[in-house]
Design a protein around this nucleic acid. Sequence first.
DNA 1: CGGCGAGGCCCCGGTCCCTTT
DNA 2: CAAAGGGACCGGGGCCTCGCC
Lengths: 344, 344
Amino acid sequence: MTQPGGRRAGTARPTLADVAREAGVSTALVSIVMRGVPGASDATRARVQAVADGMGYVRDERARKLRQSSSRLIGVTFDLQQAFHGDLVEHLYGAAAARGYDLAISAVAPTRDEDVAIQALLRERCEVAVLLGSALDDAVLASTAQRVPLLLVARRSEVDGVSSVHSDDAGGVGLAVDHLVSLGHRRLVHVDGADAPGADDRRRGFALAVERHGLTSQAQIVPGGPTEHDGSRAAEALLYAPARPSAVVAFNDRCAAGVLDLLVRRQVDVPGDVSVVGYDDSRLAVGPHAQMSTISQNAAEMAEAAIDGALDLLDGGDPREVVLAPHLVARSTSGPASGTELLD
Amino acid sequence: MTQPGGRRAGTARPTLADVAREAGVSTALVSIVMRGVPGASDATRARVQAVADGMGYVRDERARKLRQSSSRLIGVTFDLQQAFHGDLVEHLYGAAAARGYDLAISAVAPTRDEDVAIQALLRERCEVAVLLGSALDDAVLASTAQRVPLLLVARRSEVDGVSSVHSDDAGGVGLAVDHLVSLGHRRLVHVDGADAPGADDRRRGFALAVERHGLTSQAQIVPGGPTEHDGSRAAEALLYAPARPSAVVAFNDRCAAGVLDLLVRRQVDVPGDVSVVGYDDSRLAVGPHAQMSTISQNAAEMAEAAIDGALDLLDGGDPREVVLAPHLVARSTSGPASGTELLD
DNA sequence: CGGCGAGGCCCCGGTCCCTTT
DNA sequence: CAAAGGGACCGGGGCCTCGCC
């Protein structure tokens, strides 16, 4: 009750000035100690540190970043429902911290638009924004890029001034096709991603790969989507098709999980009767359907590349496109084609 | 090039002062216009707004919150891998916004400890922290609560001064048991959550419920865990048990998904041979295993209660425990017991 | 007298109270 | 009294100065 002002007890957190008063030194000195920079004697340093710890002092990142010319803050938008985004965010934290940057994350969800998420980041004065799997159209991306340097992850960018980091989607699907063909499969199907980011490239990659193997006439692309439900529906339709495929390349792991679930449910043996390959190597791939064969995008590598690209943009580097090589992770949902398949 | 100082072109974002200079007014007036508060004529308001829009002005939330006595910021920690946390975060955004608060979210993941996530929130000077499914022990919670008001979601708190919002876990499992018993099931199994938050209560609820129905001797609790893998393993063990159960109550939806996957894979008919009930009603419940019967915690309601509780704590209210009533969502993984079951 | 430890002071970008026209 | 301006201030950071051994 030393203060006549009616401030709520316990609410106020100690500031540099509070610590300085308590320790009997200036705020500048406390600042020096808290930052661990030269300018204080060891004895003073220890004493001030002890006082700060005792008071539970935590520095105000807001005030600190306000004063500094550079906020050293990277904004990230991600989709709360996408498991792969979760993997990416986790590694983005690590990659940013390793370079002395903080992360401000802003979620996208059915009731929270991507624009809203980006506006929130702009108000936080992040120096660059990293958008995971953005669904914004080129016009919006272009106008956003004029307000803040922009880097897209897991999506290609046709937009001027926008960097991007994504895996070689067409090539990745090609790896899946190569793998299946080498196992003896001939009748291949691609359950596509409809209008999801990357779906075009994966469709194209599938078409190119089957052509390369001279299997175009036996191959098929069926409409799917990015969710388990889409995969299930597509698989159901395939079961009633005249010539049942012997191998399926799904748009992503979620889609593949839907395909797998329906096949297992219909007592189709995987990989005995049908092989299935997913895309992403998200946590789903090693989940309940344990050991899904899939194309891995390597979240850690992608996150590193994203932070590198973002900081390069900040340093005045030209926007650029980084294409990562995906690789095949053959687990237990893909196997040799059955005998009948080999006959045709 | 009006400034001789070598600042990087295009990097600097306009400030209030820039807008004021451009519009030929004071910063105070621009502030009034940007906040939409009384104190400016309509004509001036329109003119200043136009200038600000033209310059692409976005206010600096950091500076604003620094000046304001209250930061109106709620910190949230959540697990990137938990689908249910994603649902909660989405609704927390909405609930906080409805009360004029911002959210600062900080993720927890295998390589990012809960302590690290909380420290980040403290540096952002959030006024209260909402922890989703915290795994911190009581001692750490108690010491954290001394630095910032704390509210736990989806976990009970024994700690003094900490509020909590969670569903009635024991009661919820009771609902599942009642449902299954009413369908004629007698040999019930609970695949538990090991040491996950809430697992104790759900075990207890199961034991109480089967006792209430006089089925203790035929009931069983087997070790499980919070992941699909745990569910799968437990289900596998059950298939080799002497008396196969006719119904399973899983710790959560992920665990139930694992159980379901293994059963389907082993060609056990669900719900013909075995009924399965999950817990959470997360996105998984309506995912690939379409239409899982489960106990719903209603993320929207929980989020509302969490924000209410957090703000109440801020207003000086006493810490309190809010227990929400879970409810049964009977979908297609639970059905009548088979004939053999009814005989014993 | 040189160098190190420490303090004074303004600044970052808004907000808000008070004063002026 | 409404509209607009002036200036202190929130919590730290960084430059410059000063005292002292």
